[in-house]
Nucleic acid binder design. Sequence first.
DNA 1: TAGTTTTAAGTTTTT
DNA 2: CTTAAAACTA
Length: 709
Amino acid sequence: MPPAPPAGYENRLACGILNAMNTLLHSGESVKSAEEDYLAPLNPEQLEAVLHSGHPLLILAGAGSGKTRVITAKIAYLIKERRIPPHAILAVTFTNKAAREMAERARDLEERASSVMIRTFHSFGAWFLRCNAERAGLEPNFTIYDEDDSLSLLSLAAENRERSELKPFVRRIARAKDYFLSPDDPDLSRIDYRKDFKTLYAAYEERLRRVGSVDFGDLIKRPVEILKEQPEVASRLRDRFHAVLVDEYQDANVAQFELLRALFGPETYLCVVGDDDQSIYRFRGAEVRNILEFPERFPGTDIIRLERNYRSVSPILHLASSVVCRNQGRLGKTLVAQREGGKQPVLSFLPDQEEEASFCARLIENSVRQSGARKASYADWAVLYRTNAQSLSFETAFLRRRIPYRVVGSLKFYEREEIKDALSLLSCMANPKDEVAFRRIINKPARGVGPAALRRIMEEADGTDGDTVAAAERALSNLPPKARAGVTVFLKSLAASAADLGGRRDAGPRQSDWAVKAGDGLSVCVARLLHNTGLAVYHAANDESGTNQRAGNLQELANAASLYPATFEGLAGFLEHIELDRSFEIAREEEDAARDAVTLITVHNTKGLEFPRVIMTGLEQGVFPRTDKRGEELEEERRLFYVGATRAMDELYLCTAARRRLYGRPAFMRPSLFLYEIEQGRMRIIGDRPECFGILPPEGFPALKDGLL
DNA sequence: TAGTTTTAAGTTTTT
DNA sequence: CTTAAAACTA
């Protein structure tokens, strides 16, 4: 579901009126209880966290300790009791899903919370950059590059190198930005000491500026740069936000920490919530030290621990804790299960991944067929795996047995060729300097524009400030007839759509019969562009499955645009949302969400979720934990295991296979190190014991001499 | 230049 | 095994 466009003025007006009414209604002592209702369900620590004020606050919230409840209650409290204007509150999350959930739950407690700025770090950065585009040297309608676009851009900047060779560099550039390191920073060697890297990074940056785009890292790094260099901007922002709340703080990287620091002024109330045991994004630059050292970085910090777990029955919590407590670098919490009793977790040894899948299928099927209190619904179940590729065997097994399922996150709607093409087309409109988008789309469908013709256009672009669209127009006379005709059609389509958007760019006359109907917003314009450029027909013809999937996907994309106004700003907003919210799903979602179905999901994606019954699969050395990871990286895998296990409320199952097809070929597997780390007696083992497979625990495992499991 | 065939490569996790 | 890039032919 595409997120709704920003709230309008009338919302704020309505809130103001409600606010006044509330004050009138609740002026007497007798109605006090109604006002404090939202505080009633809180335990003493949670309440303390909600009522806290003054110094910066670090809330160490264990898994299932009611973290979101505390944040949302705090938002309500700040508005109701502390009289902080809703628009002066900023709440930052890491995922769009978390942001949506927080917004929804906060609104349930306090209507005025709908005016609170609740965004992901990246979306906040994008908002800031659009407001301060000139200061950043950007057009307000800049485009946002994903990793793939960045790779294309880097291969333009280093044309003598192959894409595959550049791929690791793109990753490291992103990493450098996570650590707030510029090409000329002496600390850059911490990412990669080779001078190649510095050169490529610098070339990439220059090119990125020229095409008027930003990448994900820039959405954080560049705002921080502006705030550091221009104190008046920083102080204006500090004036605006009186309270800043951060969720999942353990996942913040260095640049995001810097952003927080820039937002933090003497009057700012800062509250971060996190759990060092759930830090699982180190590979993306997350710094556990951010949370470990928070009190030193923000002197006077108060710390509140939430250690009551309301989610899992105690055997599950004990199992999870017994593994994660092996980590060295942790603050150390003792989670106390509030739910006594419950079933013991089950470990199952399976011969291969097919058996693993059918084991899960049987398990689920049996539970659903049960009668009485133990009967489960499909939706109670989640199957967790380490990598998206593992979902396949479950999908086939579930399909065969008619078990309804839903795969979370791997849909990658936006990564489909036809969608990327359409987005490139739109990017060309929003930002004609976007060379990556232009190159992708100029010869699709085939317009007779080959390397030679493209080079001519790009030579022109050097003289037009990088404006590829204008360059194409100027190069027309220099192109061979076929290319000239093709490019002309392309340019006309763009111009016509630009006219739809208010015709800011030199467009032809606006045709009244094509005028955009008010209710349809951008979508008519998008649909027409896809049609006029021939992209829709091209993909309909190229649809291998023959089911018109691609045409349908393009239609869905156009439909999704209807929420946005038919203006250039609307277009930029639409593109931004698609680029930042990868969970963008096809409109069947409502129907889909209501369906009773098993959830197939990566462990990373489960953060913040909970399920009555959870199966963790693929618990083998090399898969989970992944390659032979050591030290910090192994600790992160361990935390990942912890996150997965603590998603379970009532029942937890663990699966490990002896054989697995890896990269096409079958491989013999050994059980995951983590299975050996589980405290003895914390689970029931079914299926063949590992010794039947002649499998030994991972090398150097200390418990070896104490006997297996 | 377009489209097809061959060959190679490479597979975490996500904003 | 799947996907992507490179080479080749029409």
